[in-house]
Computed example of a mutant assay.
Amino acid sequence: MAARKGSATAEAISETATTPHGLHHSHKEVVSRMNRAAGQVRNIVAMIEAQRSCLDIAQQMHAVEAAIRSAKKTLIKDHIDHCLDAAAEVTGPDRRTAMAEFKEITKYL
């Protein structure tokens, strides 16, 4: 059932991708990773409620952090690869806006 939910989420994104940036090829992968991380977070909450070992909980939290960090890097790299290339071809205020966004997103690396 989780795969179906992730798939529906990815489909919803592709149907509503009307921003200037649109849907990049990595978005489905990022959505899938984030859905898995959400499942891991729910599992961690259950572990805490079940009074599992703090070591086990901390290990799972570390795994979620790593998964989200990896998804974020994938998203940002894809943005840089595609949107920056497109911005280089634009002139005027749109180019300045795109370059400002590029500078802004790099703080999340």
Score class of each variant (00 low, 15 high):
Ser70Leu: 07
Ala66Leu: 11
Thr91Tyr: 03
Gly22Ala: 13
Ala17Thr: 10
Lys73Ile: 10
Ser53Cys: 02
Thr106Gln: 13
Ser53Glu: 06
His21Val: 15
Asp56Arg: 04
Lys77Phe: 04
Gly92Leu: 06
Glu65Asp: 09
Thr91Asp: 13
Ser7Ile: 12
Ala3Glu: 14
Arg42Asn: 13
Thr106Arg: 13
Met99Ile: 14
Gln60Ala: 06
Leu23Gln: 14
Lys77Ser: 06
Leu23Tyr: 13
Ile44Leu: 08
Arg95Gly: 01
Thr91Lys: 13
His21Asn: 07
Pro20Lys: 15
Ala8Ile: 10
Arg52Ile: 02
Thr18Met: 12
Leu23Lys: 15
His25Val: 12
His24Glu: 07
Lys5His: 14
Lys28Gln: 14
Ala50Tyr: 09
Ala71Glu: 07
Met47Ala: 01
Asp56Gln: 08
Ala17Ser: 15
Arg42Ile: 13
Ala67Pro: 11
Tyr108Gly: 07
Ala3Lys: 15
Ala37Met: 08
Arg69Thr: 11
Gly6Val: 03
Val64Pro: 06
Cys83Pro: 05
Thr97Ile: 10
Leu109Gln: 09
Ile105Val: 14
His82Ser: 07
Met99Val: 14
Gly22His: 10
Ala2Asn: 04
Met47Asp: 02
Leu55Tyr: 01
His62Met: 10
Met1Asp: 12
Ala100Phe: 00
Ile57Asp: 01
Gln40Phe: 05
Glu11Ile: 15
Thr106Asp: 04
Asp85Gln: 10
Met99Tyr: 04
Lys72Thr: 12
Ala12Asn: 08
His82Tyr: 04
Tyr108His: 14
Pro93Arg: 14
Arg96Pro: 00
Gly39Pro: 04
Ile105Asp: 01
Ser32Trp: 01
Val64Asn: 02
Ile44Pro: 00
Glu89Thr: 05
Arg42Ala: 10
Tyr108Phe: 15
Lys73Glu: 14
Ala8Asn: 07
Glu29Arg: 05
Gln60Gly: 06
Leu109Phe: 11
Arg4Glu: 09
His82Thr: 06
Ala2Glu: 11
Lys77Ala: 05
Asp78Asn: 08
Thr74Ile: 10
Arg95Val: 00
Ala63Phe: 13
Ala100Val: 00
His25Ala: 14
Ser14Lys: 08
His62Ile: 11
Ala67Gln: 12
Leu109Lys: 08
Thr106His: 09
Ile105Pro: 02
Ile105Thr: 10
His62Gln: 15
Thr74Lys: 14
Arg4His: 11
Met34His: 06
Ala10Ile: 13
Gln51Pro: 00
His79Asp: 15
Thr91Trp: 03
Met34Thr: 12
Gly39Lys: 05
Gln60Met: 06
Lys107Cys: 05
His25Arg: 13
Ala58Phe: 01
Ser32Leu: 04
Leu84Gly: 00
Glu104Ser: 11
Ser7Trp: 14
Gln60Lys: 03
Met61Val: 10
Glu104Met: 07
Phe102Val: 02
Pro93Asp: 13
Pro93Phe: 07
Glu104Asn: 04
Leu109Gly: 04
Lys72Asp: 09
Ile68Tyr: 04
Phe102Gly: 01
Asp94Ala: 11
Glu101Gln: 12
Ile44Asp: 00
His21Ala: 09
Ala46Cys: 05
Arg95Cys: 01
Cys54Glu: 03
Lys107Arg: 10
Thr19Met: 08
Leu75Ser: 03
Asp81Leu: 04
Lys77Thr: 06
